[in-house]
Each structure stands twice: as C-alpha cells, then as structure tokens.
Computed example of a mutant assay.
Amino acid sequence: MTGTRPYDPARDDLAGIVGLIHRAFAQYRGKLEPESGALSESVDSLRRRLEQNRLFLAEDDGRICGAVFATEKGDAVYLDRLAVDPAVRGRGIARRLIEAVEAHARATGAARITLGVRLALQQNIDYFQRWGFVETGRKAHEGFDAPTSMEMEKRL
C-alpha cells in the first residue's frame, strides 16, 4: 500500500530523494531544450529548496517511491518536481502526491494549485488536464524566443 507524508529530516535521506528525482526525470535527458533542471538537483539544492518549500513523499512498502514539492506563492500553492520512480509507475502514486499538495493547499487557505509543464510533454499536459488543471499561459525559458512551457492551475 502506498501512502504519502511530509518529508522528515530526521528520517529521510536527501541523497536517496535526489536519486529518485534523477531516475524519474532520466527519460527526458536529451529530449528537452533546455534540459530539465531536475537532472541537476543535488543534496545541496534540495536542502536550499526545503528552506521555502514543503516536500511530500510517497512510500511503497516502506520505500520512498515518489516526491513532490509545494511552494506557497500568494493565493496559490505551486506544485513542482513531481517525481515517481519508473519501477512503480501506473500505481496511482502521482495522483496521491497531487492529492497531498491539494490537501496542503486547502489547509493553507490557497485558492488554487499552479504548475508548469513543458510543451514537448503532451502526455504530462493531458495527465494534469484529467486532474482538473487548465492552461493559464505559456512562457519561454531564458534564451528562447518561443514558448517552451505551459502554466496550468487548478482552482480549489
């Protein structure tokens, strides 16, 4: 059975979480321009993220198999770095992590959840649309003239 919970610095190994993120995003290596920043995450970068972000983890039989960051931004909570270990995909882990962010957002009084997704990843766009997210705009990464990502939100 998979459960979700907040990151616990006394219990959870950041190096293991970095490895999980790298495994989850490895399929995009060489396929995105610019390269996904998730592939350059490190223990230090996660430690810095944790200064202003909540981290939720999914476990399967006591093993961390998914992670997602949640950042409060005005009236919204930004969902970032949704990562599920490729070995356990298709078991509803991403959904449970999104639900954890949604519960956190509701508890903080946020009006919506926002996220960014690469335009090149239509399957990911479709996934978030199935969970109630809608497009709110597009933006270009630094150094690009045309949009590279889609901004999405889900009203609570």
Rank of each mutant, 00 (worst) to 15 (best):
57 L>K: 00
70 A>L: 00
102 E>T: 08
101 V>G: 08
44 D>F: 10
105 A>I: 13
94 A>R: 05
33 E>S: 04
40 S>V: 14
59 E>G: 02
56 F>D: 06
63 R>H: 11
133 F>Q: 06
52 Q>E: 14
43 V>N: 06
59 E>W: 07
29 R>I: 12
77 V>A: 02
27 Q>T: 15
95 R>Y: 03
94 A>G: 15
29 R>T: 07
39 L>I: 08
43 V>A: 09
56 F>M: 01
79 L>K: 05
131 W>D: 06
52 Q>V: 15
111 A>C: 12
106 R>G: 14
40 S>N: 15
121 L>N: 03
56 F>H: 10
35 E>M: 07
82 L>H: 00
62 G>A: 06
38 A>P: 11
86 P>S: 07
65 C>E: 15
32 L>G: 10
50 L>A: 00
77 V>S: 09
122 Q>F: 11
86 P>I: 06
106 R>P: 10
75 D>S: 08
111 A>H: 10
78 Y>N: 12
37 G>F: 09
119 L>A: 07
83 A>G: 08
126 D>P: 08
99 E>Y: 01
52 Q>H: 15
30 G>E: 02
116 G>I: 08
84 V>A: 00
131 W>H: 08
96 R>M: 15
62 G>E: 10
42 S>M: 15
70 A>C: 05
66 G>H: 07
49 R>K: 14
124 N>D: 05
92 G>F: 00
121 L>C: 01
54 R>H: 05
76 A>Q: 14
118 R>P: 05
60 D>E: 08
52 Q>C: 12
82 L>N: 02
108 T>D: 11
88 V>P: 02
95 R>C: 06
116 G>M: 02
102 E>D: 13
87 A>I: 03
26 A>V: 12
67 A>M: 00
128 F>Y: 14
73 K>T: 10
98 I>W: 00
71 T>F: 04
102 E>P: 11
103 A>W: 03
94 A>P: 05
50 L>Q: 02
83 A>K: 02
116 G>R: 10
94 A>Y: 12
43 V>R: 04
126 D>A: 10
105 A>C: 05
57 L>C: 03
108 T>N: 10
62 G>D: 09
74 G>A: 10
113 I>Q: 01
131 W>I: 00
118 R>I: 12
46 L>H: 11
24 A>R: 05
86 P>Q: 04
35 E>A: 06
89 R>T: 13
92 G>C: 12
94 A>N: 09
68 V>P: 13
72 E>H: 08
47 R>T: 15
79 L>V: 01
105 A>F: 13
68 V>G: 12
115 L>K: 02
28 Y>R: 03
30 G>Q: 02
72 E>M: 08
34 P>I: 06
122 Q>C: 05
93 I>F: 13
39 L>W: 04
46 L>C: 03
134 V>R: 10
124 N>V: 01
85 D>W: 14
70 A>D: 04
122 Q>S: 05
64 I>F: 04
99 E>F: 00
81 R>A: 07
89 R>Q: 14
106 R>L: 14
51 E>M: 04
125 I>S: 10
39 L>F: 12
56 F>G: 02
103 A>F: 00
69 F>E: 15
45 S>M: 11
100 A>P: 08
113 I>L: 09
113 I>Y: 04
